[in-house]
Design a binder for these strands. Sequence first.
DNA 1: CTTCTTATGTTGACAATGGTAACATAAGAA
DNA 2: TTCTTATGTTACCATTGTCAACATAAGAAG
Lengths: 197, 197
Amino acid sequence: MIKKYTEKQKKQQTHGDLANSLIEIAVEHISESKSTEFALRELASKLGVSHAAAYRHFKNKHALLETIALRGYQKMNIFFLERLEISKDPLGDMARAYIQFALSNPGYYRVMFAVDFGKELNTDLHSACQGSFNALLEIMGKKNKINACKSIYTWSVVHGLVMLILDGQINTALNEFSLELDDLENQIIKITRNILK
Amino acid sequence: MIKKYTEKQKKQQTHGDLANSLIEIAVEHISESKSTEFALRELASKLGVSHAAAYRHFKNKHALLETIALRGYQKMNIFFLERLEISKDPLGDMARAYIQFALSNPGYYRVMFAVDFGKELNTDLHSACQGSFNALLEIMGKKNKINACKSIYTWSVVHGLVMLILDGQINTALNEFSLELDDLENQIIKITRNILK
DNA sequence: CTTCTTATGTTGACAATGGTAACATAAGAA
DNA sequence: TTCTTATGTTACCATTGTCAACATAAGAAG
């Protein structure tokens, strides 16, 4: 018994760019749900494609996440480069750029910090992540222990702030003191700059 | 046809303290897997109990997570109180306590920041979380905008640092500069303490 | 002690999901 | 035109969350 496809199925045989579509819709979903959990089948369905189609482009669900994380780091690194090429305040602009990237790309950012790094050393991912940190390290000046501490410190500040904001943990605090996000961001960058002198 | 249980099943009819056992094993699993994802059935099986037994103690999987988060905040608040009762350096000790709690209770800490706060306002959870922040706020002195910023700033530093450490993101940086965690922690607290000046 | 009620287990079912295998078609290379 | 490969499809399976029906334990009420 030979299977035959209907005309509709024939037309949908090629989606065009399923890999990218999957990435986009996953990032969007993660951004809205505030969680990196999602159903591959549901996304496929939304794209008008069968549940198994995704496996032609990604080995499994985790591979999709890894790809998203990698793209996120690449996007972020480019974002940094653009902002820092001509800067009179590298540290401040770096911090500002970091916060802005994360808050305007919550889907990517979440995945970048949700994918387990320890599991199977994905060298691409590792070096992409390393790249961001090195940019920060260079801003600090000479590469030594003290400046490494300062870099980690700065990373901690911006990463912590961004995660607290994305997870909605400081909403009530902001409301209570009628604080705007912009004010907070400026304050935090100001403090950071002073501290590191 | 009436079902009969074997002698073995009869003995296992009461587990003793399944609710707490579930919490403990879940926290342990999360701590080891570095992820808040787990299979309820697997945990039940490890506890020698059937897959549906958990539902006598928790409405669903998410409820278990909420309970873990709540306990985490309670444990953390107690931890803070103990450390700050007699302190000559409240901000430094607070930061130190925060980092220590998170690093020695990674399972709880992860859940505390993974449970979605926005979904269904779990008032207990909210107030428990609020309690931690208020402790920090009081250390800063008068409650105003500036000090709210400083509090959020401090929280960002310690939360960011802890998450980067737990997620293994700064391992390579630490290795590269032969930095010990203790050194880093001290450096960061030293820097943070300057905030209040 | 007996009986009733409730707390806490059990099994069995179901739907959703991740993943694989077998198969069909499209598209481009030979 | 034909062969190969990329990219879909359906069918199937194991795992998981959840619920319903049922069984037993343990303590309260008589």
